[in-house]
Design a protein around this nucleic acid. Structure first.
Length: 577
RNA sequence: CGGGAUGUAGCGUAGCCCGGUAGCGCGCCUCGUUCGGGACGAGGAGGUCGCUGGUUCGAAUCCAGUCAUCCCGACCA
């Protein structure tokens, strides 16, 4: 491609609205342009890069027997009502105003509706179906350019199996395909165990690219044996020791004490393990809402994802009015002792495992400005249940106590789930097994964010000058720079290089053939758009019969004779891959 | 949805307090000189000051509303 014909609007300065590196660079390199919040146009250079990622995905999906589809982005309300996800997604789903249609945020329902009439015998399985298509999610707060957008390209794949062993096998194939994809994209990534979120289902892993621009926190043990999203991460911490002192519990005055920090200060203690922190959550139910009081140690935080796993995704923190109604106090003075019943429903009390049968605890008295000490959960809180509901912290030990946990931010580029029969049951997608019995299809769901994958790559591969492409996703392999001079000599040579590279060698080459642009501008554009190899033809070196080859990643410059230039460049490309 | 901030030329901004001709840099156009790391000179084009209403003789500027965008917290590829 000749630069004089290529639409590449580069920017010298950072756009003021962009904060993350990938966002700035994608705009500056003329890859994307924002249309409205969370919605971006792909410009030619960006599109070439996105297609690189898509083609790698396509090849790896096809390699495990995937069938490529292209489903509509529009779908009818009723399909989503059947699985109940109209409500689950809520405002996250874009709805069409003048038809009973929605813009799909994902495609489980649509794929399942195709499977239902067509996959009717156990002999029809297994199948892997996928598509690469635009998804629409009405994100409340889009951010960081394409990292979190309202419209984005997703590869979504679905495995359809007749047996649970089949699902395991499909899932494993997919996991390997994902490893291949992200490796070929040149990403430094980790696979972590994950929460299955709004999708439902059981096993689930995420493909994470460590980056300060990431929105997720992942936990990695120092020896690498344990990796997990913090949402589901577990660790080893000693439980509270039971003292068995059997001291009676006792209310005491704590004026204006609202937080654990203030309480610790008021009591003049630093160990917060016996200060029990209470939070109340609500689970909406048809016969009246359920209330759940959650207790963790004062030095811990409640992990709301773990709660969702136990009590469903609709669970939410209680509002202040609800708190007052069931505890008689405001947040800051609530506790597990002396809760009211609301509409004849008992408040369920869940405590973290570290508090199992703990005593001598201090917690709110359910009376403003009062706390209680010497609470014995075993003695004073009948019906209490213990579960793992805390968020792990940096520096804690792994469960096997062989290593230590580190926490880092990461970008989620891919996610694989074992869905099971959730959607096939809801939509009645069944098949006959060898015994002639009817069973729901067993499904898996597998997603990759295309633009996000590319943005994650740029987050990991850049310097102060710009992007540094490498490997298969480089939009071009060579940037041929012609520095125009007094004579036509350089131009004639550049043209011959271009012809050989593209027509004879079939190398993806971008040719900076601009004649009215000064060298400095060309060099800076070159480093900004980050093509791995630059061949620079100019009068200075051509006087001695030479041209320069620059390696973008290292900045290394190699002087070669004009006769050897193309073969040397090809050699370097293959070395780099 | 809560909290914070910002809307002035393609981009980045000054002016706003204290109302009166809209300014600067980059980019763009023409001519000339220059030409290996974002050149120089001369000339030029380009702005409903986000939108609506109000106050005023007069509003980019003051007031009210509204819309949009960005950043920080709860969701996801």
């Amino acid at each position: 491609m000749r630069l004089t014909k290529f639409f590449l609007p580069t920017l010298k300065d950072d756009p003021v609205d962009a904060v993350t590196v990938s966002h700035k660079l994608m705009i500056r390199a003329g890859m994307i342009k924002q249309l409205t919040s969370g919605v971006y146009s792909s410009l030619p250079f960006g599109l070439i890069a996105f297609r690189k990622v898509e083609n790698i995905i396509r090849e790896e999906m096809n390699a495990i027997g995937g069938n490529e589809f292209l489903l509509p982005a529009l779908s009818p309300h009723e399909l989503w009502a059947e699985t109940g996800r109209m409500e689950d997604y809520g405002d996250l789903m874009f709805r069409i105003k003048n038809r009973e249609l929605v813009l799909c945020p994902t495609h489980e329902e649509v794929f399942t509706s195709i499977a239902k009439p067509n996959l009717i015998s156990y002999k029809d399985f297994p199948q892997v179906w996928y598509q690469i298509q635009s998804k629409f999610r009405n994100e409340e707060r889009p951010r960081a350019g394409v990292l979190r957008a309202r419209q984005f390209t997703m590869k979504d794949a679905y495995s359809l199996d007749a047996t649970w062993e089949g699902l395991d096998s499909s899932y494993n194939d997919m996991e390997q395909a994902y490893r291949n994809i992200f490796t070929r994209c040149g990403l430094d990534f980790v696979v972590v165990s994950a929460h299955s979120g709004a999708m439902g289902g059981s096993a689930s892993e995420e493909f994470m690219v460590p980056s300060s621009a990431g929105e997720d926190n992942i936990v990695i043990s120092e020896d690498g044996s344990y990796t997990s999203n913090i949402e589901v991460a577990v660790s080893f911490v000693e439980k509270n020791e039971r003292k068995n002192s059997d001291l009676p519990f006792e209310e005491f005055h704590t004026p204006d004490i609202k937080s654990i920090d203030e309480l610790a200060g008021f009591l003049n203690i630093t160990d917060r393990s016996r200060l029990a922190k209470s939070r109340v959550f609500v689970r909406p139910a048809k016969d009246g809402d359920d209330y759940i009081l959650v207790l963790v140690r004062g030095d811990d935080e409640v992990n709301e994802m773990k709660l969702q796993n136990y009590f469903g995704i609709n669970i939410r923190p209680a509002h202040n009015e609800e708190l007052a109604a069931i505890t008689g106090a405001d947040a800051g003075s609530i506790g597990p002792v002396g809760l009211k019943e609301l509409k004849n429903k008992k408040v369920k009390i869940i405590a973290d495992l570290l508090l199992e049968e703990a005593d001598e605890l201090i917690s709110g008295a359910n009376r403003n400005d009062y706390h209680i000490k010497n609470i014995d959960l075993k003695r004073d809180v009948p019906g209490i249940e213990y579960r793992d509901i805390r968020t792990v912290k940096e520096g804690e030990q792994t469960l096997d106590r062989k290593s230590v946990l580190r926490i880092t931010k990461a970008i989620e580029v891919g996610h694989i789930f074992k869905l099971g029969t959730m959607y096939s049951e809801a939509l009645g997608a069944k098949f006959l097994d060898a015994d002639g019995k009817e069973n729901p299809i067993i499904m898996g769901s597998y997603g990759i964010g295309v633009e996000r994958t590319l943005a994650a790559f740029i987050e990991q591969s850049n310097d102060e000058k710009g992007i540094i492409w490498k490997g298969e996703i480089a939009p071009f392999k060579i940037l041929l720079i012609s520095l125009s001079g007094k004579t036509d000599e350089v131009k004639i040579l550049s043209e011959s290089f271009y012809k050989e590279l593209t027509e004879v060698r079939n190398i993806e080459t971008l040719y900076d053939d601009r004649e009215d642009v000064r060298p400095g501008v060309k060099f800076n554009d070159a480093d900004l758009i980050g093509i791995p190899l630059q061949i620079i033809a100019g009068e200075k070196n051509l006087k001695d019969g030479n041209v320069e080859i620059k390696i973008r990643s290292t900045g290394e410059k190699i002087l070669v004779s004009k006769e050897d230039a193309v073969s040397k460049a090809l050699e370097l490309i293959y070395l780099k891959n």
